[in-house]
Design a protein around this nucleic acid. Structure first.
Lengths: 341, 341
DNA sequence: TCCCTACTCTGCAACGTTGCAGAGGGAGAG
DNA sequence: CTCTCCCTCTGCAACGTTGCAGAGTAGGGA
C-alpha cells in the first residue's frame, strides 16, 4: 500500500528517475521508445506523482484559499463561485474555508499557521480580526481582504462603496414618499464597520432630503440572518408610533426575514411597508414579493481580488497595497413597487 | 524574502537543527535555557515551519476535501457547514471545492490528480461521474460518497432513503385530499439516479393509495434551481386539465420557484395548489408561505461521512465499503396547511 | 572515586521530487 | 574515417522537515 515512486517506475522501465520525471512532466524531449516504456510502467504500477514533494521542491502549491465567515450565507456562496471560477481561469485551484467569524480561525488562516501555510495566497473576508492583529502577520503569504472591515489600513483590499450604496437605497425609499424609513442591521461596535458605513449612508440620504433621522427606527442586529431580520421587524412593529412606512435592511437575508414577519402579521409589502435589501441574492429574486436590493457586482469583485492576489504572488509582495472598489447598482423589484407588473 | 528555515534558527540560537525542531513541536524535554534561546531566535527571525516539508515527511496533511457540485445551492452550503464542523472536531481541516457538476473536475478530484492529491481523504457528492470511472480510481486516497448517485457500488457511501422520503411527501399531499398530485424534477437519464429514486417514491405513494399516476404531471428538469421550478410550474399551469391540486418538488429551490410562479399567476398556496419540497433549507422556513419539506438529517449525514472517512484514513483503506443511510422526516408547514397558524 | 542512570541534545538519513550540469551515443559533414 | 554537434538521457544534490539512534554531561549512589 506504499506509494509508488519515480524510483519504482524507473526500475520497471529500465531508465533513470530523472527520465521518468521528464516523461511525466513533458519537460525534455524523449525518444518514442523510452516514452512508451515509461508510460507503460506508470500505468502498470499506478504511479501518481507525490504532489507534496513536488510542491516542496517548487515552493508553490497552485492553491489559493478563500476564507469567508459563513458559506451558507448566500452572498458568500455566490461570491465564492465567482472567485473559484476566476482563479481556475488563471490556473489556480481555489479552496474554501469557513471561519464562522471566530477570531481564532481567522487568525490561523491569516497568520499562515497550520494548514494555512499551504496556500500560495489568501483571500479573506474578515469579520472579527482587528487591524492591530493583521499588522503582525507573516507577509510571506500574499493576502487580499474583501469587504469593508479594516479598509485603507495598508492591506490590499477590495470592496464596494457602502456609504453611497446605502444612501441610494435609502433615497429610493424616501423618494417613494414613505414617511419614517427604518433601518435594520446596524452594528455600533468595533467589528461592525460595514454596518456602520451603511448606517452612515442611511443618515446621509436623510440629510440630502432634509428628513430627520429617528434613531428609534434604527434597529441593530448582531448577525445578518433571516431570524435577525424577522426579530428586528417584530421590534419595529411594536414601535409606539406604529410600523414604519419603509425599511432598509443591511442585507437580503434580513430583508427576507423582515418581509416574513410583515406578511404573517397581515401587513402588505410594499403597500404598507416597502422593503429594500442588500447583496442581490437569488432568493430575493424569487421571493414574493421579489426584493428590491443593492446589487454589488460580484464578478468584478472576484476579478479584482483574484487579479490583485496573483499580482502579489508574482511580485513576491513588493508592490504597495491597493484599495479598490467594485461597482454596485440599485435593482428595483416588487418590494418597493406599488402596482406590480 | 527567502524563507527562514530551522537551519537559520539553529545557527542564531547556537543549537542544532534537531533541537529547534524539538522546541517548536514540543517533542522532547528541553532545558529552560535552550528553550528560551530558541524561542527568541524564532521570534526575531520570524520563523514559520514549512508545512509542505513537514507534510512530505509525515506523509499526511491533516486536510480533507469536501467536493460538491454547487456551493450556492443552499443544501450543499448547509451540509458543508456540518461537515466542516465535524471534521474540525476531529482535528482535520475541511476544505471545499466546487465542481459545477463538470465531469472533468469531479474526475480530477476523485482520481487524486493535481492538487487533489494533497488531501488525506475526500468526501464527494458526485453528479456526473459514472460508476465505471470510479472503479479505475487510485485507492490511495480514501473516498466517501454522498448522495444517491452510484449507490451500492462497492464504494463507501452515505445517503438517505430517497424512495421512502419521496413516498412520504407524496402521501402527505394525497392524504390532504388533493386530486392530481404533480411532481417536478424527474431526470430520466444516467446521472439522474437521485431524481429517479424520488420519482419512484412518488409512484409508490400513488400505488399505496390506489391512485393512478398521470405521467403528464411529472415534469422533468435538467437542474434543481429556482428558475427550473418556476419554468416547470408554468408548464403545469398550461396543462389541458388545468393546474394540479398539489406538487411535490424534488428540492426546495424547485418548490420556491414553483410557488413564485403560482403566486404571480394569482393562485393561492396552499388553497389552490399545495407544495412540498425536499432538503429543508433555511429559505423555505422563511418563505411566505413557509415550505413543507422533507428534512434530511444533515448533522447525521455529516457525522456518518466524516467518521467513515476517518476510519478509512486510519485503516489505510483495508476496511470493506459500507453503505449507510441517515434519517429524514417530513416537516409540515404552511405550504400544505389550510387555515394557517 | 567510580559507575550507572537519566536527561538533553545532536548528526545522519530519508520523505519524493526537480534543477543543474554533464555524459554518452548517433548522425551528419568534411 | 574522423571530427563535431546535437539529441537523449543520467547522477548528484537539494527543497525543509522529522525519525532514529546514540553521544555527551551531570548528578546520585555505592
Amino acid at each position: 500500500m506504499a506509494q509508488t515512486r519515480l524510483r519504482d517506475v524507473a526500475d520497471a522501465a529500465g531508465v533513470s528517475i530523472r527520465t521518468v520525471s521528464n516523461v511525466v512532466n513533458g519537460y525534455a524531449p524523449t525518444s518514442e521508445d523510452v516514452r512508451r516504456r515509461v508510460e507503460q510502467a506508470v500505468k502498470e504500477l499506478g504511479y501518481r506523482p507525490n504532489v507534496l514533494a513536488r510542491n516542496l521542491k517548487q515552493g508553490r502549491t497552485g492553491m489559493i484559499a478563500l476564507v469567508v465567515p459563513e458559506l451558507d450565507v448566500p452572498y458568500f456562496a455566490e461570491l465564492s463561485r465567482a472567485i473559484i471560477t476566476m482563479g481556475r481561469e488563471h490556473g489556480y485551484t481555489v479552496i474554501l474555508d469557513q471561519t464562522d467569524g471566530e477570531p481564532d480561525r481567522e487568525r490561523e488562516m491569516v497568520m499562515s499557521k497550520g494548514s494555512a501555510a499551504m496556500f500560495d495566497g489568501i483571500i479573506l473576508s474578515p469579520l472579527a480580526l482587528s487591524r492591530a492583529e493583521l499588522i503582525q502577520r507573516d507577509p510571506a503569504t500574499p493576502l487580499v481582504l474583501l469587504g469593508e472591515h479594516i479598509a485603507g489600513s495598508g492591506f490590499d483590499h477590495v470592496s464596494i462603496d457602502n456609504v453611497s450604496a446605502a444612501k441610494a437605497a435609502t433615497l429610493h425609499l424616501i423618494d417613494l414618499g414613505r414617511q419614517r424609513v427604518a433601518a435594520i442591521g446596524d452594528q455600533p461596535y468595533e467589528t461592525g464597520e460595514t454596518a456602520q458605513l451603511r448606517t452612515q449612508g442611511y443618515r446621509l440620504a436623510h440629510r440630502a432630503r432634509k428628513c430627520k433621522v429617528d434613531s428609534s427606527l434604527i434597529v441593530p442586529t448582531t448577525r445578518f440572518h433571516y431570524a435577525d431580520g424577522a426579530a428586528a421587524m417584530e421590534q419595529l412593529l411594536a414601535h409606539p408610533d406604529g410600523p414604519p412606512g419603509a425599511v432598509f435592511c443591511f442585507n437580503d437575508l434580513l430583508a427576507l426575514g423582515a418581509i416574513r414577519t410583515l406578511l404573517t402579521r397581515g401587513l402588505r409589502v410594499p403597500e404598507d411597508v416597502a422593503v429594500v435589501g442588500f447583496d442581490d441574492i437569488e432568493a430575493g429574486r424569487f421571493n414574493t414579493p421579489s426584493l428590491t436590493t443593492i446589487a454589488p457586482d460580484k464578478e468584478v469583485i472576484a476579478q479584482l481580488a483574484v487579479k490583485r492576489l496573483l499580482a502579489l504572488i508574482a511580485s513576491k509582495g513588493v508592490e504597495h497595497p491597493s484599495d479598490v472598489s467594485a461597482p454596485h447598482q440599485l435593482v428595483v423589484r416588487e418590494s418597493t413597487t406599488i402596482g406590480r407588473g
